[in-house]
Design a protein around this nucleic acid. Structure first.
Length: 255
DNA sequence: ATGGCTTGAGTGTCAAGA
C-alpha cells in the first residue's frame, strides 16, 4: 500500500499538478492540506474521473483537508473530536483497513503569540484523541503538514532557527508525544540524504538554494511501521511552474 | 533590515503562511 501527504497551498491552483502526480505515482491514498476552498469549489468530479474519489473538510480561503483514495473509505471523521475549532484542519477515514488521519497542524506564527498558544493546545488535543484512536485502529497512519521540524537535521540552518517557530522546544515536545504514543516517523526509519526537506520558502530562491525545513511527515503505528518498506520526499513537483511550497511525502507499506 | 513570494478576497491592499 502506498500512502502520501501533500500541502498543495490551494487546490484550485494546484489541481493540474495533483492530477499529474497521481497518474505518475498511483498511490492508494493521498492526503491533502490547504485546499483553501469550500466543498463547492472542490474538484470532486475531476478527481473521481482520475480514479480518486475524495472526501473533503474545507472552508473558504484558509485551511481545508482532503483524503483521495482509489477504493472506498469508511468511518469518516471531520475535525478534531473534543476540540472546539472553526478551522478545518483534520479529516480521517479508513482505507483498505488502514486508519488515515490527515492533519494540517497550526503554523503558530511566532513563539509566544496567541496563534502559538492555539497551536500547542491543538497539538495536545490531537495527542489525546490519537491515544483513543490507536486503541480502536491498531493500523493507523498520521499524515500531514505538522508545521514542526522535529530535529536540527530537519532544518537548513539550525542556529538561525533555534527556538523559533516550527523548531521551538514545546513544539518538538509535542512531536515526541506522538512518538511516545507509539507513532514512528516513517522517513527516519530509512537512510536518507542529508539536508532532506519538505518545504522551501518561495522567497530568496529558497528551493534552488535548498533552504528548507522538513515539516511534512508520515507517522506510523507499530503494526504499520514494521511493514513500512520505504519513505521518501518527492521533490519533482516543487520544480514545476507555479509549484506548491511543499513537496509530497510518500510511504510504502507491505501487505 | 522582520523584508524577500504566493494565495485568496476582491478591485484596495491586506492577512496569512512558515
Amino acid at each position: 500500500m502506498k500512502i502520501a501527504t501533500w500541502n498543495v497551498n490551494s487546490l484550485k491552483v494546484r489541481l493540474p499538478h495533483v492530477l499529474d502526480w497521481l497518474a505518475v505515482e498511483q498511490p492508494d491514498a493521498l492526503c491533502l492540506q490547504e485546499t483553501k476552498t469550500e466543498d463547492g469549489g472542490f474538484p470532486f468530479d475531476a478527481l473521481a474521473a482520475a480514479g480518486y474519489p475524495a472526501i473533503h473538510n474545507g472552508q473558504k480561503t484558509y485551511n481545508g483537508v482532503a483524503i483521495l483514495a482509489r477504493h472506498s473509505v469508511q468511518d469518516e471523521v471531520r475535525d478534531l473530536p473534543g476540540f472546539d475549532d472553526p478551522q478545518k484542519r483534520l479529516i480521517a477515514a479508513t482505507v483498505d483497513g488502514v486508519r488515515l488521519v490527515c492533519a494540517y497542524m497550526p503554523n503558530g506564527q511566532a513563539v509566544g503569540s496567541d496563534k502559538y498558544a492555539y497551536k500547542l493546545r491543538w497539538l495536545a488535543a490531537l495527542a489525546d484523541w490519537l491515544r483513543a484512536e490507536l486503541q480502536r485502529y491498531p493500523r493507523l497512519a498520521l499524515l500531514g503538514d505538522f508545521n514542526i521540524a522535529p530535529d536540527d537535521r530537519d532544518v537548513h540552518d539550525p542556529a538561525a532557527w533555534q527556538g523559533q517557530i516550527l523548531c521551538s522546544e514545546p513544539e518538538r515536545a509535542a512531536f515526541r508525544k506522538f512518538v511516545d504514543l507509539g507513532l514512528a516517523d516513517a522517513f527516519r526509519r530509512f537512510d536518507q540524504p542529508e539536508k532532506s526537506f519538505s518545504w522551501w520558502d518561495y522567497r530568496m530562491m529558497g528551493f534552488r538554494r535548498n533552504l528548507g525545513l522538513r515539516i511534512d511527515h508520515i507517522m506510523l503505528s507499530p503494526a504499520l511501521a514494521e511493514r513500512c518498506q520505504a519513505c521518501r520526499i518527492d521533490k519533482a513537483p516543487r520544480k514545476l511552474e507555479r509549484p506548491s511550497d511543499h513537496a509530497p511525502v510518500v510511504a510504502e507499506i507491505g501487505a
